[in-house]
């Protein structure tokens, strides 16, 4: 029971991280390998606001999201808008951004990792099925569920979501009916970056902040998107929860094989469903 809960709470952190990456890929065809670095930027900015400035955690989340969104805006306007449909260049540019952002963070905050953010109001625990469970993890699961519903509603039930979906199908047609696709794409990139930044701060409650996040969490986010399928909120959620639970269970129950469990899972899913669990296509 506790192991599954642990997996779910980790899975929801991964969902917050990977949903932005999945939507950006689905809508724009951009493989943003600097997405983990945006998570890292959010984590450090949020840590500074919550710990150094002793401000409220909500303000820290807003600051982390704003900082990552701003960096995302610069990346989109400065690079990806100019590299449309050029996958090789996009990957190289994104890797460059990853290294630059990691070095900048290291320069500003130092190379040493930061301890998890301590929010006294979330310090307690709750009893679930007779087990004591950290309140902060329950809150993360709740935030993840709220985020999933919000993103699904935005994508499936709003005009903005319809434009994004239409852009995934046929961007020329969307342009032809007078919609500024470039603006929509830029906004989506910034929102995806901001969600990654917010995820960095929320994840910072249990993981802290580290300059290794740029690579470490990107790897997990990519596995989530491969499993879930690109451009789908539901797919990202399913993929994230699967990664969270499988990774957590294998680490405690099958530690000898836990290092490659996720890769085995990814291989099996790709063999059975080449477009991911959701079956959705970008």
């Amino acid at each position: 029971m506790l192991t599954v809960l642990n997996g779910l709470s980790f899975g929801f952190i991964l969902f917050l991280l990977a949903s932005g990456l999945s939507l950006i890929m689905g809508a724009m065809g951009v493989l943003n390998l600097a997405h983990g670095a945006l998570y890292m930027v959010g984590a450090y900015v949020g840590w500074s606001v919550a710990v150094d400035q002793d401000a409220s955690f909500l303000l820290a989340v807003a600051a982390g999201a704003a900082a990552a969104g701003l960096v995302g805006l610069v990346m989109e306007r400065g690079l990806f808008a100019r590299l449309h449909d050029r996958l090789d260049e996009q990957i190289l540019a994104a890797f460059g951004c990853l290294y630059i952002l990691t070095d900048l963070v290291s320069l500003i905050w130092g190379p040493q990792a930061k301890a998890p953010i301590d929010v006294p109001a979330l310090d307690g625990s709750v009893t679930i099925a007779g087990f004591s469970y950290p309140l902060v993890r329950v809150v993360i699961i709740g935030v993840g569920i709220a985020f999933a519903i919000g993103l699904w509603w935005l994508q499936e039930r709003t005009r903005a979501g319809a434009i994004v979906r239409a852009g995934m199908d046929d961007s020329s047609m969307v342009r032809a009916i007078g919609i500024n696709v470039e603006l929509v794409v830029a906004l989506l990139f910034v929102v995806g970056a901001a969600v990654a930044g917010a995820a960095g701060v929320i994840g910072g409650l249990v993981l802290g902040a580290s300059t290794s996040f740029g690579i470490d969490v990107l790897l997990l986010a990519l596995i989530v998107v491969v499993l879930g399928g690109v451009g789908s909120v539901g797919g990202a959620l399913a993929g994230a929860l699967m990664v969270g639970v499988v990774d957590t269970v294998s680490r405690t129950e099958l530690p000898e094989v836990s290092s490659f469990t996720l890769y085995a899972l990814m291989t099996v899913v790709l063999l059975l469903r080449p477009t991911g669990l959701s079956g959705k296509a970008a």
Binding site: F10, L207, D216
Partner: peptide, 8 residues
Amino acid sequence: GTTDLLPY
């Protein structure tokens, strides 16, 4: 490469 230590 373990990110989440809660399971342990």
